[in-house]
Nucleic acid binder design. Sequence first.
DNA 1: GAAAGTAGTTCCCTTTTGGAAACTACAATA
DNA 2: TATTGTAGTTTCCAAAAGGGAACTACTTTC
Lengths: 123, 123
Amino acid sequence: MRKKAQINETPICQLRMQAISDAMSVLSGKWKFHILGTLIEGNKLGFMDLLREVNGIGTKMLSKELQDLEVNQLISRKVLDTKPITVEYAITENGRTLSPLIDELANWGIAYRASILNKNTND
Amino acid sequence: MRKKAQINETPICQLRMQAISDAMSVLSGKWKFHILGTLIEGNKLGFMDLLREVNGIGTKMLSKELQDLEVNQLISRKVLDTKPITVEYAITENGRTLSPLIDELANWGIAYRASILNKNTND
DNA sequence: GAAAGTAGTTCCCTTTTGGAAACTACAATA
DNA sequence: TATTGTAGTTTCCAAAAGGGAACTACTTTC
């Protein structure tokens, strides 16, 4: 009867756990998935476009989340030389690899909600 | 030139956004994925087993996260009539549906880390 | 009788997150 | 010249999240 971790001590589990922490650290926060999802759907959006698209977000959080996403190379930011300067936010190649994950998450959420509702209906 | 949301106003996007919020609310926090992953891997673990398996977690957070997961029907809790009472935590059917999502997240994390390291190496 | 193992809870604290409102700054428009 | 639109930043605050340490309570083993 050993009293040490047995499951998560394996190198493969360590790697996966680390990978999950990595992923969570760049995807954490209330708005990241919504912003990324919006930019995957409609490509090249301005700051004010995103502010209108992402329901409920304010300028401070939008600005902060966009900076995070840019630092982590999931979106790109391009300042255009227009009068009122405009900024073009777009998904990067790296960011687009999140598409299956976002789909998976959305589909799981839909299925989960349905399963909970069924359970309650059958009670 | 309309100044209202165009992308996320569609019913399908609304549904997806809501689903993502649902999923995030039950999966939020630093430890949920680690606990769920551990319970998917090794089935039926006690409180102290989980405390040893989930690296870095303390009793307070473990207790709280397990309660959350149980309320949301992703894990089950069964008190056994043993001397020192023991408790068996296990993944539920509902919880097991997260398996593909956790895999996706872990694999994305691995690929993302590799892509960032490559980028920096090529600089 | 003391130690160790079971499974937690409670208290107190710091850090992180999120948000509202006001503000900057510049240019075109009415 | 006042308003509107661009893209943010700053300040101030409240709530949530996270964690260490001590504590409960019960039983078996040393």
